[in-house]
């Protein structure tokens, strides 16, 4: 079975924020919750590079390990999803996640965090596929429709790739190969200049 993965090509990402907007609008994410964000290094300086980050859908996901109510689970294709009806909003997944992916809407009792919300790889949730409940709680289910996630689908420079890990890796490998060989090859400076 295919293993779903995101890959952001830092040589192509231009920090336009389109993926963030597409995700928020397309999935009706509440204000203050960001399933995807863009991190920029050396902003405004030579060598500026950006990368778009969301849930990495880890193989051995720390969030699944720490969840005290087993609300987070992983599909056979590697997509990590949360059951918002089981989640108690304790925030342990946020503490365990290296990428800051889990998000929490505010505004419950004693200002408590609500159920965790994170990138679903646009694969909906545990509710019935294409049901209103699924759309309301988790957003679109584009994977069931046979489409790539919204963020990757709209990426103008095609920096953000999503889909079967093998195909994504092939696309990226092709790009790296075309970008340069010899002294321009990836890893050359690491190998010969240090």
């Amino acid at each position: 079975m295919a293993r779903m993965k995101f890959l952001c090509d830092v040589e192509r990402c231009i920090d336009c924020g389109g993926c963030v907007v597409a995700c928020k609008e397309g999935n009706h994410i509440p204000v203050g919750v960001n399933r995807r964000r863009v991190v920029t290094l050396k902003e405004g300086e030579p060598g500026e590079k950006s990368i778009s980050i969301s849930c990495m859908h880890c193989a051995d996901a720390p969030c699944i390990a720490v969840c005290p109510v087993d609300a987070i689970y992983q599909r056979a294709d590697g997509i990590v999803l949360v059951n918002k009806k089981t989640c108690i909003g304790c925030g342990y997944c946020f503490m365990a996640c290296p990428f800051g992916a889990p998000q929490f809407p505010a505004g419950n009792v004693f200002g408590a965090r609500g159920a965790m919300d994170k990138c679903t790889f646009c694969a909906g949730g545990p509710e019935e596929t294409f049901s209103d409940e699924e759309k309301r709680l988790y957003g679109q289910n584009r994977i069931a429709e046979g489409k790539v996630p919204l963020c990757a689908g709209m990426c103008a420079t095609k920096a953000l790739l999503a889909g079967d890990a093998d195909v994504v890796a092939d696309v990226y490998r092709e790009r790296v190969f075309q970008r340069g060989s010899g002294a321009n090859a990836w890893g050359w400076d690491r190998a010969y200049k240090k």
Binding site: P68, V69, D70, A71, K85, T86, C87, I88, C90
Partner: peptide, 10 residues
């Protein structure tokens, strides 16, 4: 909460 997984959560 610690043993929430056995109580079904929610």
């Amino acid at each position: 909460m610690v043993l929430g997984a056995y109580l079904g959560g929610g």
